[in-house]
Nucleic acid binder design. Structure first.
Lengths: 152, 152
DNA sequence: GTTGAAAACTTTAAGTA
DNA sequence: TACTTAAAGTTTTCAAC
């Protein structure tokens, strides 16, 4: 991965639909070269995908919460993580240091649904307790941090 | 926003680089129609952008932490949020219920840098204390939850 | 890495229900 | 209004260099 790759990645993080021709113009390569480089970055697992970002409220997911998952003494973290992944309302799942095994981000339509989801989380085998932090507003989210990409 | 819009959004969440022609084939519309619909969804703020997703470890951001921000008595939440946004290592920022004003997600290269970043967070005017949860592993992240999009 | 060319896609305009 | 087709311009993609 050289400087040009980093530049291409930074561009694609800002605009995931940039054309290879556009990228070529910004980094000073032919579209073919960019195309090949991007293919290699994808194959190498550096670029893992492309997603449209949607305003959650506009698609009926107005309630967000961060939930700490405290495990039982006998819990298998991997099994708990798999179970967490089976709930579609769990958008992200981090294994963390501390007395909680995981912190997950949950997105649902209503607080009623949140209550419902928390119940399901608690019923997962290996989950002892949950600790819920309700998100009041999302100031910003998933901002591309191109430290070391833009110029490194 | 009708069923077709929802289908298009779900597709673009899974593959942000899907061509209008591809989208048209999956939803049963011409490329022109899809093009027009996507333009309207973007203009309406439903689709807010497109991003390449990068494996953070592959771009030198191997350390992730979730940091609760406890405010001082006199803090202006908005001003604190702006200050948080000025640090590029703060990827996401949520205003939350509870004794913490915000929870932020921080991504840095090393634990040394994490220490450095936490110092800067604490020095923000309006920040009394921070509570840091180090992420040991990201099981999954930013999964598109297409509840209510895939089928209505 | 480049160019060149065919196929595919984008994007606008014009026309239809 | 929302769709389609048509057509010109662009981009993709795959050779060959």
């Amino acid at each position: 991965m050289d400087q040009l790759d980093r530049k291409i990645i930074a561009e694609l993080r800002n605009n995931g639909r940039a054309t290879y021709a556009e990228l070529g113009r910004t980094v000073g390569l032919s579209a073919s070269s960019v195309h090949e480089r991007v293919g290699k970055l994808e194959a190498a697992g550096v670029i893992t995908g492309y997603h449209a970002v949607v305003d959650p409220r506009r698609v009926g997911l107005g309630v967000t919460a961060l939930v700490g998952i405290q495990p039982t003494d006998t819990a298998s973290d991997d099994e708990v993580a798999v179970a967490l992944g089976e709930l579609p309302e769990v958008e992200s799942c981090y294994a963390v240091a501390g007395d909680e095994a995981f912190v997950v981000k949950v997105r649902v339509e209503t607080v009623d649904e949140l209550e419902h989801t928390l119940g399901r989380l608690r019923r997962i085998d290996g989950v002892a307790r949950t600790r819920t932090t309700v998100v009041l507003s999302t100031r910003f989210e998933g901002r591309p941090n191109n430290t070391g990409l833009d110029q490194g």
